[in-house]
C-alpha cells in the first residue's frame, strides 16, 4: 500500500497529532515502506481460522458491585486525581471552551 501525503495528513488528524507539510512528505514513504512490509500477511491462508481473542486460556473475571471496595479503583479521591492536572478550577478539569 502506497500512502500519499493526503492520507498521512488524514491519519495524523484522526490520531490528533499536528503535522507540518514537511512531516507529511517525510512520513509518506516511511509509512508506505512499513505498510508494504506488513502486507506480506495478505498471502497467508487464514481460511477457517478464528482471530485470536486470548493468548492463553483464561476466563474474564467480573467484579462485585461494591463501591470503593479497593481504594485503588474506587472514587472519593479528587485531590489525588487532580494533583497532576495542567489546569483545574473549583474541582473541575478545564479545557478550552468547546462549542457544541
Amino acid at each position: 500500500m502506497s500512502v500519499d501525503t493526503a492520507t498521512v495528513k488524514k491519519v495524523a488528524a484522526l490520531a490528533r497529532i499536528a503535522i507540518t507539510d514537511e512531516d507529511a512528505a517525510r512520513l509518506a514513504p516511511e509509512l508506505s515502506n512499513i505498510l508494504g512490509w506488513i502486507e506480506q500477511l495478505e498471502g497467508v491462508n487464514t481460511a477457517g481460522v478464528e482471530p485470536m481473542t486470548a493468548v492463553i486460556p483464561n476466563q474474564l473475571r467480573l467484579r462485585d458491585d461494591v463501591i470503593d471496595a479497593d481504594p485503588l479503583t474506587g472514587g472519593g479521591i479528587r485531590d489525588a486525581l487532580m494533583a497532576n492536572a495542567p489546569q483545574a478550577e473549583h474541582g473541575f478539569f478545564t479545557v478550552p471552551k468547546v462549542i457544541e
Binding site: 467484579r63 461494591v66 463501591i67 470503593d68 471496595a69 479497593d70 485503588l72 479503583t73 474506587g74 472514587g75 472519593g76 479521591i77 479528587r78 489525588a80 486525581l81 487532580m82 473549583h90 474541582g91 473541575f92 478539569f93
Partner: peptide, 20 residues
C-alpha cells in the same frame, strides 16, 4: 471501576483512577 454512580454528587468526587 468501584466508584459510585449516585446522582448529584460534587464534581469529580465519584471518579476513580480508572475512570480518569
Amino acid at each position: 471501576s468501584g466508584a459510585a454512580t449516585a446522582f448529584g454528587a460534587e464534581p469529580n468526587t465519584q471518579v476513580s483512577l480508572v475512570d480518569a
